[in-house]
Design a protein around this nucleic acid. Sequence first.
DNA 1: GTGTTTGCAAACAATTTGCAGAATT
DNA 2: AATTCTGCAAATTGTTTGCAAACAC
Lengths: 142, 142
Amino acid sequence: MKTLKYSRQRESIKEFIAGRRDHPTADMVYTNIRRSYPNISLGTVYRNLSLLASLGEVQKISCGDGVERFDPNTESHYHFICRGCGCVQDIPMMPSGDLEAMATKVFEGSIESHTAMFYGLCRNCQGSGLVGNAGSDKKAET
Amino acid sequence: MKTLKYSRQRESIKEFIAGRRDHPTADMVYTNIRRSYPNISLGTVYRNLSLLASLGEVQKISCGDGVERFDPNTESHYHFICRGCGCVQDIPMMPSGDLEAMATKVFEGSIESHTAMFYGLCRNCQGSGLVGNAGSDKKAET
DNA sequence: GTGTTTGCAAACAATTTGCAGAATT
DNA sequence: AATTCTGCAAATTGTTTGCAAACAC
């Protein structure tokens, strides 16, 4: 049988994500957890992230930039991605049941859920003049 | 200066995508174009696909399965992805301006566009009993 | 003690890139 | 002739996996 055993690494990863609102990537989790567990390996981080995701303790989200991100909020909700700095933020609104109903009406199959991504400039990037550097924040995030 | 020169390979790739409604991946494009150009390389396919995408002749779409897909329809529209067979289909409805307006109202940044992904079972997978094999259709698509 | 988790390194998959030669203008 | 494009192979990036040792129960 598949029992679940405690692991301080996994606990620490879960805790780290829970304290974040910026939807960290596996790599961001790795470099940060390393402060408390210098020997943790990237493999362990990936293994635990997908385990936590399948347990429903975190949500894995794909933003189309080729990197998976992780969200402590496991309820279905919309996201925003900034074309300036590439940051990912939550959109504080309920997923639209109407939208899903409309889609169901025009689609010949069964629709069970949906997600939405909004694009534009975040508060910081608006009027900062610094636009077009999405992704230039590679590595080195706190 | 950056002039654009004709290439039969690029033309053939564009034409192939134009005739498809299934949002082919780079690899699907590659294996198909190979029938007409047996020596074409995957690199060339990727180069042309991103060129065509930046020219606005095709649309690149990410469905969260780690593979980019290409759509001849360059207008903004919603997509559906089947959890049974993994197929990707268009949702024949206009993107909701209301949804964008609502998001704009609750978000402290500027929203310029949005996309939505719907999940469920496609017509073929509904009632076929064959569920849970998404992705098992690796390679070998016509 | 039995079974799960870890660290490490090697393996993978999707995509990108450098370069010499072929094709287009 | 000047450039752009191609094929090939090697390089990158993000993620997964095999395995022996460490850890949890």
